[in-house]
């Protein structure tokens, strides 16, 4: 992995994410920006995929169960060539193929429809079961939000994956510490997330800076090296709104108005980050 290239890719994803939400004027910006770095790593060679053949049967698959991070996923897919960048301007507009939450029937490169929180965890396990039946060695990647894992279904899926030894599942927890109404620790404290997964028969890896592509990449390599028959949870300590300092770590960034001035301000800041590379 060329670290600078992946960092540059992450900045490009952030720019497109902010621009498309700004183009609409409102959107789930905070939780989209917090997962950009893991998307950048996955789509920079970690995943076995082919943008020219999105339906390649033995590909690795991604279920973004926090479906509201759609704009970040769409920006990643557009930059990888799954569809034209101009399509990002249609985000959430009438008739779009880029709805607020991920839709496998509308968007090339989206592997599962998500939106109602918790459900992607189960469908990812189904995909992993299917790929095992097909005899594929492919990985199923799952991204869940920290607020999302308050849903019981996530733990049903975790228990299932542990019991069925779905060792080609890697679940990222986007631990940005914020949910809509309050900080996670105030609303429904999650305790030790990694230990929770471990008690369900998973390996767990804690990534100190979940917005650092090198740390993320190392964690994935570690997960793949364990090979003890267990799925792996990677807890990414992230920052909501990461990359646009004005909104970083703010509860209000979950779903907020984004005007042209904010887009310009964010672009200038991200350009500075690019120059620093």
């Amino acid at each position: 992995m060329n670290v600078n290239e992946v960092k540059k890719f992450a900045i490009d994803i952030r720019k497109e994410t902010i621009k498309c939400i700004g183009n609409l004027g409102v959107g789930h910006i905070g939780g989209a920006l917090s997962v950009v770095d893991v998307l950048a790593v996955l789509y920079s060679g970690e995943m076995n995929i082919d943008p020219k053949n999105p339906a390649k049967d033995d590909r690795d698959m991604l279920v973004c169960s926090k479906g509201h991070a759609g704009p970040a996923v769409y920006s990643t897919l557009a930059l990888k060539g799954y569809f034209p960048l101009e399509m990002l301007d249609t985000l959430n507009k009438p008739g779009t193929n880029l709805p607020s939450h991920c839709d496998m029937n509308r968007t090339p490169g989206i592997d599962m429809t998500t939106g109602s929180l918790g459900q992607g965890a189960s469908s990812a396990m189904g995909i992993a079961c299917a790929n095992r039946l097909k005899g594929y060695d492919s990985y199923t990647y799952l991204i869940v939000g920290d607020g999302e894992i308050e849903e019981g279904q996530v733990w049903e899926a975790a228990m299932f994956a542990g019991a069925k030894k779905l060792d080609h599942v890697i679940c990222f927890v986007d631990y940005n510490k914020c949910q809509i109404d309050d900080y996670v620790q105030n609303l429904c404290n999650l305790g030790n997330i990694g230990k929770k997964f471990e008690s369900f028969g998973w390996n767990s890896i804690d990534v100190e800076d979940g917005n650092d592509v090198e740390q993320i990449s190392a964690a994935i390599a570690h997960a793949k090296s364990i090979q003890n028959g267990q799925p792996t949870a990677i807890v990414l300590n992230t920052v909501k709104g990461k990359g646009y300092s004005k909104i970083e770590g703010s509860l209000g960034s979950h779903n907020m108005p984004v005007n042209a001035d904010m887009v310009a301000e964010a672009m200038a800041e991200l350009d500075e980050q690019l120059k620093a590379l």
Binding site: D111, S122, S123, A130, A157, F160
Partner: peptide, 26 residues
């Protein structure tokens, strides 16, 4: 046996796992 998935008492997860299997052609 390999095409049978007894999920335990978790109806919501069972339906989701089924959806994932379906998305891969089962």
């Amino acid at each position: 046996p390999e095409r049978t998935f007894d999920c335990g008492v978790q109806e919501a997860n069972m339906i989701g796992v089924a959806a994932g299997l379906s998305s891969r052609g089962f």
